[in-house]
């Protein structure tokens, strides 16, 4: 397997605060990787730096063997690097279908778009029912579905999801993860940032644990689930 994403010594700073402090991270083609960690560990900042939404203060990464540092975010998307942002970021006053089409904004092959829409509606039947409704009227879970669907519209090779379960009812979280599993089964490489470590580890191949901007543990997802430190800190298993 080839590494699709190779992050080396990535640093992100906001003013004097170091959010990401020398992160090394690899994602193989077709792999499902989870980044777990507490609030403020630097997970979201790592994803934002990869998507080009914040400029790294040091280090860098290659994607498909290419250095994308100097490439603006809108061109990263057209190379198959898609981010589902934290807090979903749906466009409230656009309809669901308009939101989805926004995800394919950079695509020149407009004849393929109806097919892409059908693909997303196939994954999320709820969105199809409400496609002419304004996104702001959707529930939180439906907005998360929309945000994921919108990112899929760009036909990503690497899909980065930032806290897809945030603020959702347990039943809805299950549903969202079911779809994420389906997306992975279609061959999309996943980089998942998640607080719900149990669900995230269950669908991942490998996991990185992040603390105060640093990677403190790398292992297979199965091994992480057995790791006493992970169990105590992220799986709510006080007994070890």
């Amino acid at each position: 397997m080839n590494p699709l994403l190779e992050v080396r010594n990535l640093c992100v700073r906001y003013g004097g605060i170091t959010a990401v402090d020398g992160v090394d991270l690899d994602v193989m083609e077709g792999e499902r990787v989870t980044l777990i960690g507490a609030n403020g560990a630097g997970k979201s900042s790592t994803l934002k730096a990869l998507a080009g939404l914040v400029a790294p203060a040091g280090g860098g990464f290659t994607y498909g063997g290419q250095d994308l540092q100097s490439i603006p975010p809108w061109q990263r998307v057209s190379r198959g690097l898609a981010l589902v942002p934290e807090g979903r970021g749906v466009f409230n006053r656009l309809t669901i279908e308009e939101n989805l089409l926004m995800g394919a904004y950079h695509r020149k092959d407009s004849s393929a778009l109806p097919g892409e829409l059908d693909h997303v509606y196939g994954l999320f039947a709820r969105l199809h029912e409400r496609r002419h409704q304004q996104a702001g009227t959707l529930s939180g879970g439906e907005q998360q579905m929309l945000a994921i669907g919108r990112a899929l519209m760009s036909r990503p090779r690497l899909l980065m999801l930032d806290e897809p379960s945030m603020g959702l009812a347990p039943l809805m979280v299950e549903k969202i993860f079911e779809v994420i599993r389906k997306i992975a089964a279609e061959g999309v490489t996943l980089l998942l940032v998640e607080q719900n470590a149990r669900l995230a580890l269950a669908l991942s191949d490998r996991a990185y644990v992040m603390e105060s901007g640093r990677i403190v543990l790398v292992d297979t997802a199965a091994a992480c689930m057995e790791n006493p430190m992970v169990r105590a800190a992220y799986l709510g298993d006080g007994g070890g």
């Binding site: 970021g89 466009f91 308009e98 926004m102 904004y105």
Partner: peptide
């Protein structure tokens, strides 16, 4: 409209903001 609603999300969608 997308930029007006959420500029960061618009940029991450591949819009040349």
């Amino acid at each position: 409209a997308a930029i007006r609603e959420d500029e960061l999300a618009a940029a991450s969608m591949g819009l040349n903001t």
